[in-house]
Design a protein around this nucleic acid. Structure first.
Lengths: 136, 136
DNA sequence: TATGTATTTAGACTAATTCTAATCCGAGAA
DNA sequence: TTCTCGGATTAGAATTAGTCTAAATACATA
C-alpha cells in the first residue's frame, strides 16, 4: 500500500488495511464519482484475497464518516462517492448520468449563501448545488 | 374527487382516476415531502378498493413526468415527492431527516446561476440547492 | 353491446444496501 | 513465542425501494 494512502487514512483516524487502501486509492484516481458497485468492480481483483461487497460498503461508510471522501447523491436509488473533498458542486449530464465536479470558480462570483432560514430557527451547516443539463 | 384536483390532472394531461386523485390530493395537502411508502400509507384507506404499491409508484412517476409534482432527492436510497412546483430549493434537517421548502426569497438576492461549465461545452437546464443543517 | 386502450392489481423480481454470524488478523500481554 | 481480544473481513441472508409481469378491470367510443 502506498505511503501516501497510508498517511491519508492515518491522518483521518482510519486504520489502514489493504482493502481500505485499494478502495481509497481507486477513489483518489478517478473523477467519475463511482457507485459502490462500480468501486467493487474496479478493485475486486486488486487484492490477493476475495473482496466482499460488505467490506466495500463498510469502507465507503467509514471513509465518509471520517471525512476522507464525500457521498454525492444526484439521483434516487444510489449513492456515489467523491474523493475530492474541496468545496465544490456537481453537474449531472441528464443524457449519460455522468457526474462532474463544478469548482467554485466555474460558477462565477456566486456569493456564499447564508440563508436566513425559517426566521432563523435553523442553522445551515453547508449546502450543495447540483446542476442538471446536457452536452451542447 | 374534488373538482380542483380533476382540473389539475386534466390540465397536465393526466387522466383523473380515483387512485391518482387521492395521491395528488394528499401531496397537495402536505409539506412533508413524503416518500413513496409514506404516500402509500397515507392514502391506502381512502379508496373503496385495495391500493397496490405499483399504482403508487406508477402514479408518482406519471405525475413527475407530466409536471404535476417534483421528485426531490436529498438522501441516498429513496425519492421524495413535492407538490410545490414553484421555483424553490430545500433544507434537510440532519437530525430528523425532515425536508423543508426554501423559497427563493429566503436565500436573498441570489443571482440566477449560469455557470460557464467546462468551457461552455455543457448546457445547464436547471439547478437545485440543498441546504443541510439543524434546528438551533 | 362489443371492442380496444389505459389503468390497476397482486405478487414476482431486481437492485442497492444492511445485517449476521463466523472467521481472520494483528497488537500487545503473559 | 503463544494467548487473547477487539476490530476488520467474509459469504450469504435479509431488508428496502422500486420495477416488471400478466391478468383483471374500467372506460370511452364504435
Amino acid at each position: 500500500m502506498s505511503y501516501e494512502i497510508e498517511q491519508l487514512l492515518n491522518k483521518h483516524g482510519v486504520k489502514p488495511t489493504p482493502q481500505r487502501a485499494v478502495i481509497a486509492e481507486y477513489l483518489m484516481s478517478t473523477m467519475s464519482h463511482p457507485t459502490a458497485d462500480e468501486v467493487f468492480q474496479a478493485v475486486e481483483n486488486k487484492l490477493p484475497v476475495s473482496l466482499s461487497r460488505a467490506t466495500v460498503y463498510n469502507t465507503l461508510n467509514t471513509l465518509v464518516e471520517k471525512g476522507v471522501i464525500r457521498e454525492v447523491v444526484t439521483e434516487a436509488g444510489k449513492a456515489r462517492y467523491d474523493a475530492n473533498i474541496s468545496d465544490h458542486h456537481h453537474f449531472v449530464d441528464l443524457e449519460t448520468g455522468q457526474v462532474m465536479d463544478v469548482p467554485l470558480e466555474e460558477i462565477g462570483n456566486l456569493p456564499i449563501i447564508q440563508p436566513k432560514f425559517m426566521d432563523g430557527s435553523f442553522e445551515v451547516q453547508n449546502f450543495q448545488i447540483t446542476f442538471f443539463g446536457k452536452r451542447k
